[in-house]
C-alpha cells in the first residue's frame, strides 16, 4: 500500500475579532491508496476545514499536505487546481451543480476543463452508471435532490479520480434517498478503486468506511 494523502502537522487559524482562533490543531495522518476514510465530528469540529485543506481548496496556517507525493502548498493556486483536476473528484452536501448547464454538460465539465476530446460520450456513460441516462438534457433545477446528487457522483467519477472528497453527501437528502446515494457512491468507489475521504456526522455512514478519524474542537481524537 502507498500513501496517497499525507497530512503533516496541519493547523488552521482564523481571526475572530482581533483574537486568533485555532480551528484545526496539528492534524497529522496518512491515507493509503484505495482506503476509505471517514472524518467524523460534531458541527463546528473542523471537519470541513480539514477536507478543504486536504483538497487544496484552502491554505493552512502551518503544516503541509502531500497529495500523491506532491506538496500541495508548494504549488501556486493554479498548480493546485491542475492537481485537483488530475487526481480528485468531489461530492458536496449542496450538490454544487452549475445551474446553467444540463446534467450531461455538468458531467462533461471536468473533462472539458482537461481538454478531453470525447467528453460527451464519456459523460453519457458516467450518467448511465448512475442511472440517469434519460435525464442528461435536464437542467439541475428540473431534477430531484437525489438525482442531482447522482449527477454530482457521475461528475466526480467521470475523470476516474484517484481520490474522492465527499462533504456530507447525504446532508440535503431524506434518509431513503441518502442511503441510495451512499450505496451508489461506495459501489463506484469500489469499482474504480478510488480512495475515499468522506466528511460526515453520521456514525453509521462512517462505519461503512475502512477507517474513521474523529475530530473534536479542531483536534484529532
Amino acid at each position: 500500500m502507498t500513501a496517497i494523502v499525507q497530512a503533516v502537522e496541519l493547523t488552521k487559524q482564523v481571526l475572530s475579532g482581533d483574537q486568533p482562533l485555532t480551528i484545526l490543531h496539528h492534524a497529522s495522518f496518512t491515507v493509503e491508496a484505495g482506503e476509505s476514510l471517514a472524518i467524523l465530528g460534531a458541527s463546528g469540529s473542523g471537519k470541513s476545514t480539514l477536507l478543504g485543506l486536504l483538497a487544496g481548496l484552502d491554505i493552512p496556517s502551518s503544516g503541509s499536505v502531500l497529495l500523491n507525493g506532491i506538496d500541495l502548498f508548494a504549488l501556486d493556486e493554479d498548480g493546485r487546481a491542475k492537481l485537483r483536476g488530475e487526481l480528485a473528484g468531489f461530492v458536496f452536501q449542496s450538490f454544487q451543480l452549475l445551474p446553467a448547464l444540463s446534467a450531461l454538460e455538468n458531467v462533461m465539465l471536468p473533462l472539458e476543463l482537461r481538454g478531453v476530446v470525447n467528453a460527451a460520450s464519456r459523460a453519457a456513460e458516467s450518467l448511465r452508471q448512475v442511472g440517469l441516462s434519460a435525464r442528461g438534457h435536464h437542467l439541475p433545477k428540473h431534477l430531484s435532490g437525489g438525482e442531482q446528487q447522482r449527477v454530482a457522483l457521475a461528475r466526480a467519477f467521470v475523470t476516474q479520480p484517484k481520490i474522492l472528497f465527499a462533504d456530507e453527501p447525504t446532508g440535503n437528502l431524506d434518509a431513503a434517498t441518502g442511503a441510495q446515494v451512499i450505496e451508489l457512491m461506495l459501489e463506484l468507489n469500489r469499482a474504480q478503486g478510488t480512495t475515499l475521504i468522506l466528511v460526515t456526522h453520521d456514525e453509521a455512514l462512517a462505519n461503512r468506511c475502512s477507517r474513521q478519524l474523529k475530530l473534536s474542537a479542531g483536534k484529532v481524537v
Binding site: 468531489f90 454544487q96 445551474p99
Partner: peptide, 16 residues
C-alpha cells in the same frame, strides 16, 4: 461565484 468556485475545485485554472 458558485459556478466559478466549482470549476476551480474541479481543476479549472484562473486563465481558463
Amino acid at each position: 461565484l458558485d459556478s466559478c468556485a466549482v470549476m476551480r475545485c474541479l481543476g479549472a485554472q484562473q486563465g481558463q
